[in-house]
Design a protein around this nucleic acid. Structure first.
Lengths: 111, 111
DNA sequence: ATTATATAAAACCATTTGGTTTCATGTCAA
DNA sequence: TTGACATGAAACCAAATGGTTTTATATAAT
């Protein structure tokens, strides 16, 4: 779905440490730009640009609420990364460790 | 192990489409620079630079054989990416699909 | 009505990135 | 030993990246 040729793909979006930290913050819930900015040593404008890039990659979405714009995490595109990675699984037997992870983390079935 | 503060981390290394294609090529086995270059519409020098970046991220290693330098895939650092991704698993119930993958792909135990 | 808040948009800037061309060096083959 | 092959290294370049400051606009609060 969504549009044609975006400028930033998931790989690029996630390459920047600031953007990764933004995603992590948003994992805790929806936040307006100012609140996000307060966690970083840079200007609101800089953070707004990062959010724009994350938006293009569809890793976040923003909605206007009053005078603020609240952003939230949209993790779906990370699946592309996951699938890319899975190709390399066979090259260093780590399937056991994946299994271990799954077993140790209870699966919550969508009810 | 290896050294201190590398310039390129896995996230950056993997952000470039050319470098991802290089990794894919090397998944097929060790190759010298010229052989790799033949798959791309750019100069040998450009590819050598990409290989250097992949080297810094420890995603490839090169050994000198006669007059050529052969590179091979070192997928271990991809684990960092995988772990980073796993944090976001909880945000869109896909654990079942991981389990499915593990079950469907027989685990080869290192003998 | 006025002021403070929250964002948007534009112009600007230094550094990094991804490529090039050129030149030098080591190795293999005839 | 002469030439072809494979790479290394350096200088250069345009465009992209990650930041800034400034100016404008909409909303909320007093």
């Amino acid at each position: 779905m969504s549009s044609s040729a975006e400028k930033y793909d998931v790989f690029q979006a996630v390459a920047d440490p600031t953007r990764r930290k933004v995603l992590q913050l948003l994992a805790g819930g929806e936040l307006p730009i100012s609140a996000i900015t307060s966690h970083f040593p840079m200007s609101r404008t800089a953070i707004a640009k990062h959010l724009h890039i994350l938006s293009e990659a569809e890793l976040v979405s923003g909605r206007k609420v009053g005078r603020e714009k609240r952003f939230r995490l949209q993790p779906e595109p990370l699946n592309e990364l996951k699938e890319w990675l899975s190709f390399y699984d066979r090259f260093w037997d780590n399937k056991l460790s994946i299994l271990k992870h799954v077993v140790e983390n209870p699966v919550k079935v969508k009810e």
